[in-house]
Deep mutational scan, measured.
Amino acid sequence: SELMNSSKLIRMLEEDGWRLVRVTGSAHHFKHPKKPGLVTVPHPKKDLPIGTVKSIQKSAGL
């Protein structure tokens, strides 16, 4: 199965306009000026399962 580095996923979010608002432990929480909701990324993780990545991307509207 495909894995993604959390840094790469965070870069994709930031390029889309998401900004880090809070860190709780290894959970990084992002908000967007125009899009609704809060997106949480486990970080640092070298090997996020593709299912997790897809669900984060979906929440972020990517």
Rank of each mutant, 00 (worst) to 15 (best):
S26K: 12
G37L: 04
F30T: 00
P44D: 04
H32A: 00
E14C: 09
V21M: 07
I50N: 10
G51W: 11
D16P: 00
L48Y: 02
D47W: 11
K34D: 13
N5G: 13
D16E: 06
V21Y: 12
L62S: 04
G25I: 15
G25F: 09
S26A: 10
S26Y: 10
V41S: 00
K31A: 11
N5I: 14
P36H: 09
G51H: 13
S55L: 12
P42M: 06
M4C: 11
L20C: 15
M4K: 07
R19G: 07
T24A: 11
L38I: 15
V41E: 00
E15L: 09
E2D: 12
L9Q: 02
R19W: 10
G25L: 12
K35R: 05
S6V: 04
S1G: 13
R11F: 08
I56Q: 02
L62W: 03
K46N: 15
S55H: 14
E15W: 06
T52Y: 07
R22P: 01
L48E: 01
G61I: 02
G37F: 04
I50A: 10
L3R: 10
F30G: 01
R19M: 14
S7C: 14
D47V: 12
W18E: 00
K45M: 11
L20I: 08
S1A: 12
S7R: 07
S59V: 11
I10H: 02
S59M: 11
M4W: 15
V41Q: 00
S26R: 10
T24H: 11
V23L: 06
L13Q: 00
H32M: 00
M4P: 06
K45I: 08
V41F: 03
L62G: 04
K46C: 13
M12E: 08
K34S: 10
L3K: 13
A60Q: 01
E2H: 10
S26D: 15
K45Q: 11
E15R: 08
L13N: 00
F30A: 01
K46V: 15
M12Y: 07
V39D: 00
H32F: 01
L9R: 01
D16K: 04
D47P: 06
S55E: 14
K45F: 09
V53T: 06
E2P: 08
S59R: 11
P33D: 14
H29T: 15
S55K: 13
K45R: 13
S59Y: 05
G25S: 12
M4V: 09
M4R: 05
E2N: 09
G51M: 10
H32R: 01
G37C: 07
K31F: 07
K34N: 13
R19P: 00
T24C: 12
V21S: 08
K45G: 07
G61E: 05
K35N: 03
V53G: 02
H43N: 03
V41G: 00
P36G: 08
L48T: 03
P44T: 05
H43L: 02
E2R: 06
L62D: 03
G25A: 14
K45T: 08
S55D: 12
E15Y: 08
R11K: 13
F30V: 01
F30S: 01
G37Q: 06
P49F: 05
L3T: 15
S6Y: 04
S26Q: 13
H29Q: 14
K46P: 15
K8E: 15
L62R: 04
